[in-house]
Structure formats: C-alpha cells, structure tokens
Amino acid sequence: MLSQKAKYALRALIMLAERPDDELVLIADIAERENIPRKFLEAILVELRKQGLLFAKRGKSGGYRLARPANEISFGEVIRLIDGHLAPIPCASKYSFKPCEDCIDPDTCSVRWLMVQVRDATAGVLDKRTLADALRHRQATGGLAANFDI
C-alpha cells in the first residue's frame, strides 16, 4: 500500500512539474496548494533533494524545483525512494528480499510466486509512468492549470 508520505511526495513533485524549469517554489506555496502539512512536507522535500530529485535554494529568492525533467522521474522511482519497495510482501521484493518467518521454502511458496507477479505488474506500470504523464492527465481532466498562482 502506498504510504501517505509517498502520496504527498508525488503530489508535490507533480505540482513542481507544472512550473517552468527555472522557477523556484516555496514550501509554503506547495503545502497550501496541495493541502500537505508544512512540517511533514519539509522533511519529504529534504529527502527528495538528498536523493537528487529536487534542486533547492535557500534565502529570500529560494525554493524548490525539479532537478531533472518531469519525463525522467517515474512514479516507481519516487515510491521506492520514499517507501523502500514496491512488493506487497517482503519475500517478493526484488531489492530488499526478506523471507517470511513461517515460510518453509520461499522458492516453492505459492503465495510468494503470486506476489512476485503482483510486484512485477505494479513495477511495470509505475516505472513507465512519469511526472510528465501525471501532469498531462491533470491538465486533460481539468485539474489545476500550469499557470495556477497562489
């Protein structure tokens, strides 16, 4: 299941994708527009900056912007950075495999077999969809326009 932290990260990133590449956006503006608690958002944005998804500038004319083009940032990448993995159970994780305590043999476990398929299908969608795709969807469905001003 997608954590609230990952949902907030995605919403903030999509908002930043709406802005021109060189425009910096204040945390307060993101928090207000996306209805995200500011302190929680601050921690999320710092984490995304450390992971190379955001550029930040401090000071009077500071703020945040995407560090890479929106079409190069996938939902899968963001979710993995925030939540750690896409697998529904730890034994199905590609990068952080951990066998279940009650499992006799993960290689023959039918539950794991199915959950690996779920993981692969989920990754197949999330790794192909980018912030640019979400922005196009937002605009096509009458979501907030790219020129939205706070």
Rank of each mutant, 00 (worst) to 15 (best):
50 K>F: 09
50 K>T: 10
52 G>D: 06
52 G>M: 09
54 L>S: 13
55 F>G: 02
55 F>R: 07
55 F>M: 08
56 A>F: 14
57 K>G: 00
57 K>D: 00
58 R>L: 12
58 R>K: 11
59 G>D: 01
59 G>Q: 03
60 K>Y: 03
63 G>I: 09
63 G>R: 02
63 G>M: 10
65 R>N: 11
65 R>A: 15
65 R>V: 10
66 L>E: 03
67 A>I: 06
68 R>S: 10
68 R>Y: 12
69 P>T: 07
72 E>Y: 03
72 E>G: 04
72 E>F: 11
74 S>I: 07
74 S>P: 02
75 F>L: 15
75 F>D: 00
75 F>R: 05
75 F>A: 04
75 F>I: 15
76 G>Q: 05
76 G>I: 07
77 E>P: 00
77 E>M: 08
78 V>E: 06
78 V>L: 04
78 V>Q: 08
79 I>H: 11
79 I>E: 13
80 R>T: 14
80 R>M: 12
81 L>Y: 12
82 I>Q: 08
82 I>R: 10
82 I>L: 10
82 I>H: 06
84 G>R: 07
85 H>Q: 09
86 L>F: 04
87 A>F: 00
88 P>F: 02
88 P>G: 05
89 I>L: 14
90 P>M: 13
90 P>I: 11
91 C>Q: 13
92 A>P: 04
92 A>R: 01
92 A>G: 04
93 S>V: 02
93 S>D: 13
94 K>V: 15
95 Y>P: 00
96 S>L: 12
96 S>N: 13
97 F>R: 08
97 F>V: 10
98 K>F: 12
100 C>P: 02
101 E>D: 07
102 D>R: 03
104 I>S: 13
105 D>Y: 12
107 D>S: 13
108 T>Y: 04
109 C>P: 02
110 S>E: 14
110 S>F: 00
112 R>K: 12
113 W>I: 01
113 W>E: 14
113 W>V: 01
113 W>M: 07
113 W>C: 04
114 L>M: 11
117 Q>Y: 08
117 Q>G: 09
117 Q>H: 14
117 Q>K: 15
118 V>G: 05
118 V>I: 14
118 V>Y: 02
118 V>W: 03
119 R>F: 13
120 D>H: 11
121 A>H: 09
122 T>I: 08
122 T>H: 04
122 T>R: 15
122 T>V: 13
